[in-house]
Write a protein that binds this DNA or RNA. Structure first.
Lengths: 151, 151
DNA sequence: TTGCTTATTCGCATGATTTGCAGATTAGGT
DNA sequence: ACCTAATCTGCAAATCATGCGAATAAGCAA
């Protein structure tokens, strides 16, 4: 996703309005690597702007997605998560705490469908399920994040 | 998933009852490569057994999943789809018609997370999005399946 | 076959997530 | 300051899935 400043520019140039709600969400999403759900963003946004509507959060998220400024991902049927990282990347989901990390992958080009077929893939997405560093470390389970996995 | 006969055996041996509803679902799922949703199975089942409850379909599907006889997959936030294929495989989703095909993958072992990290993957799933053979073929669009993609 | 026990089925209520709608509000230009 | 269209908000409603309790029926024993 572009910076809040650049988004403001883009919105302006498209005749869209720069509201405080949008500006807040721009900043909350900027470089956000948490893959938050709409609900999570709403909670955070509400702390800074009491009265903001969940509907507005959904609306803005949908708008940004349609503008190609935001990505969406879902894992195992949970709620949709938003991803401002638009670079080509994949995800690693921790079975313990539900954390989702962006990962780059080596040799993805080597992966191919083995049986003879006529499927023309336009994109390939890889999801690793496993245990993250934090949950693997035997010591200091105190600051281990709580399980945020929706399902 | 095991054959209906084997499932009947397993259910019996575990003290579970063999109801006509379960038997019907066993047969509908056996070697079913359509990745149906609960709703889709309910529709099919209703044709053969009017009066069967959607609740029962969900219940049976959940039971089979918990018994490890059935797999679940979801794509792009749509409804859960059930997969009787328990072999190690991946999926190719057609952007046009929503069809989902099971695929085997070559060189998956070559795929690795590139940046230094301590994530221990226990499983890796790959999803291809693209156009299936049927939707690619320019001729005979007549028998092209309708778009079953939920979202 | 009859009857008993307990698993199952079924329908409805409820929960979670997301979208549609309409009226109130406000950004941004005149 | 004023206008107008875009936006925000609250609520209804759609979709998907699960909890619950009453009714039903499978499987077993006599």
């Amino acid at each position: 996703m572009r910076s809040p400043e650049q988004l403001v520019e883009r919105f302006r140039s498209e005749g869209l309005k720069i509201t405080p709600q949008r500006q807040l969400l721009f900043s909350l999403l900027h470089e956000n690597a948490e893959h938050p759900t709409a609900e999570a963003l709403y909670t955070t946004a509400s702390a800074q702007m009491p009265g903001i509507s969940l509907r507005t959060v959904y609306q803005t998220l949908t708008d940004l997605t349609e503008m190609g400024e935001l990505g969406q991902v879902t894992f195992d049927g949970g709620a949709v998560r938003f991803d401002p990282n638009l670079t080509d990347h994949h995800h690693a989901v921790c079975n313990e705490c539900g954390a989702i990390a962006d990962v780059s992958i080596d040799h993805l080009d080597a992966v191919s469908i083995s049986e003879p077929n006529h499927f023309s893939p336009s994109s390939t997405s890889v999801v690793f399920h496993g245990t993250c560093a934090r949950c693997t470390t035997p010591t200091s389970n105190l600051d281990k994040p709580t399980n945020n996995q929706t399902k």
